[in-house]
Amino acid sequence: MIQVNDKKISYVAGMTVADAIEASGATTSAMTIVLVNGKFISLDMLNKTALKDEATIKLLMLISGG
C-alpha cells in the first residue's frame, strides 16, 4: 500500500513516484513539491525514483507557509 496525501493506492512492483501519483488521481505542476517518506524528490526525478511498499508520498503546493 502506498499513501499519497490522504489517499491509499495498491503497490505494484517497480512502481515509480510518478506512477503512484498518477494512480492516486493527483497531478503535479511546477509549484508542487513532492516528499517521499519525508525527503524531497525533485520533479525531474519523479519517473526515475522507484518506490518501496508502504511508502508515504506528500504533495504540497508549497508557496509559503502562511
Partner: peptide, 20 residues
C-alpha cells in the same frame, strides 16, 4: 481537493520542513 493547505491547513508545511 488534494491540497493539504485545504484539507489540513498551512500547519501541514511542518511535514515538509521537520525532517529536513
Amino acid at each position: 481537493k488534494n491540497d493539504p493547505f485545504h484539507n489540513i491547513g498551512t500547519i501541514a508545511t511542518i511535514e515538509a520542513t521537520g525532517a529536513n
